[in-house]
Structure formats: C-alpha cells, structure tokens
Amino acid sequence: MTGGPVTGRFVLAALLVGLGPALGPGPGAAAARTVYVASQGAGTLVALAADATEAGAPLPVGRSPAQVVAGPEGRLYLTHPDTGTITVVGGADGSIRQTYSVPGQPFGIATSPDGAHLYVGDWAGHRVMRLSARTGALEGAVAVGREPAGLVLDRNGTLYVADRESRQVSVVDARTMTRKATIAVGTGPFALALNPARDRLYVANVRSGDVSVIDTVARRVVATFTVGGMPYGVAVSPDGGRIYVTDQRGGNLVVLDAEDGALRATVPVGRYPEGVAITGQQAYVANWFSDSVSVVDLRSLRETVRIAVPDGPRSLTVVPEDER
C-alpha cells in the first residue's frame, strides 16, 4: 500500500500514514498485514505495520476498549464493557464509523464470516448477544455460563464461548442462537483458539494454569496441557503444530507442541501479557502492564522488538493484506 490515493477497501492504515511519516505502514513497505492493538487504559487503537518498530498514531476510540476483532472489508469492532458500547472503525474515512449502545457489559466479540452479524458476550449478563453488524440492533441472545470471556466462531456457524466462572465452554449454534452443549474445562477459562483444521479448540484456563484441548467433533476434552502461572491468551501456529500461550504471572509467551503439550520454549515478554496473535513467522503479544507489544520470532523463539503502545493493551488483531 502507498500513502497516495486510497485504492484498497481498508483505509485506516492509509489514514494513519497521512498523520505522520513514522506511523502506520510506510510507502513501499511490503506490508503483508497490519496488527491493530486496543489499549483499555488509554482508550485508543494503534496500527503496527509489518516490520515497524513504532506504533502508528493513536486513534481515540472511546473509553476502555477491552477487545478488538477484525471483520470483513477491514472493519474493526471494539467492545467497551464499562460504557456498554461497541465502536466500529474503518470504512471510507478510516476513523470511528459508528458507536452502538448495547445492553449489559459487552466483552468478548466475534464476527460472522459474511460480516452481517456480531456475536458479543455480556460479561455481567451471562449471555451472548447477536447484533446486526450494520446497525448494532439486538437480533437475539442465548444464555451461557457465568462471565463469558473469549468467543470464537467457526466458519461452519458454531460459536464457542469461554464461561469463565462456570469452568466450561458453551457450544452455540450461531444461526439459531441455541446452546447445543457445554464442555467442562479447567478453572477460569478465558481465551480460546481454533486450530486451522478446526478440529481442536484450545482453552486457556487462568486459574488452573493449563490449556484444555477440545475435540470439536466429539465435543469433549481430549487433553490438558500444563502451562503454569496464569494463561490469559492462546493462539495456534498456521500449520497447527504449535500453540502459544501468554502467562501473566511469569510474563512469558509459552510455546507448546500442539500434539502432546510438550514445552518447546518459554519466551520472556512484558508484564501481564494477555492477547496474542500470529502472523507469518511472528507472534505479537500485548503486554497489558508494560504498555507494549512484544514481537516474537517463531523460528528463533526470541523477542525481536518491543513496541511502545498507549496505556493498557489487552487485545490485538491481524488484518491481512487481502482484506484491504
């Protein structure tokens, strides 16, 4: 992408380039993707271009964004549990496109593949809502366990919900908004990640310090991998062979073999790391306490750069080039 006339569908990054030379993907950069980081304390979103060592200019998005997710056409959706709102970023002017007021405390979020719907956990309401992505209107809801945290939507229309205080994952049919199953996991399930084959769901359990491995066809736990500490985020390598877990107590990215849970590496990052996203041969880790993002090279299993971001980053998401 260049700093010239906007030709892609996703233009936030282009706008950020216009705000300053060191911000966003620079002209001529071979940007395969951009990582966006939501900072809960600062109330901002920043873009991290591929290979950048500095964040783009912060975009104010309203108070206390907890989670950010990328939808089709490069749109980003952020939840604000403290204010009961969802903000939509992107589109023609690359700024705040819309702010939706929604019931309860919206926290975890997923988008439907066609971009028509948002699935949003209501933390204090112990349910998941389906909203129109275009208007924010409530289309339906389904009761889940207590304090729904992470959500992930399989492209076959199955929604998985980490019910943090119920020690279970709820399995929801996203089309009918009915709960099909609950699967008992460890204590304090918080984050979820599907493998590329979509036959395994990895569940980071904050309080029991482990990862539950769910067979998504049989809908049962087939293994439990010990991590230690407080696992708050989880991601899977593109080939499905490794899983990456943030440990908030130790301040580490823990790398496990997806097959047997064997420890492959413990990579020191910042303090209280939470969100983790994989792109190419890099893991991006949001260090909530340290106000930074660690970039970890997945071949050397070392942190290669630590990028300062505004106060309290918890969540990040990758927007690939072909979405722009």
Binding site: S64, A66, Q105, W123, R146, E165, G188, W288, G312, R314
Partner: peptide
C-alpha cells in the same frame, strides 16, 4: 472470592 470478583476493566498498581 472468585465469583463475580472480576469486572472487565483491570487497573494497575505500581
């Protein structure tokens, strides 16, 4: 202690 102890917005002490 665990039940309902966590709101969604953490704060830092340092």
């Amino acid at each position: 202690g665990a039940a309902l102890a966590h709101g969604p917005t953490p704060q830092k002490v340092d």
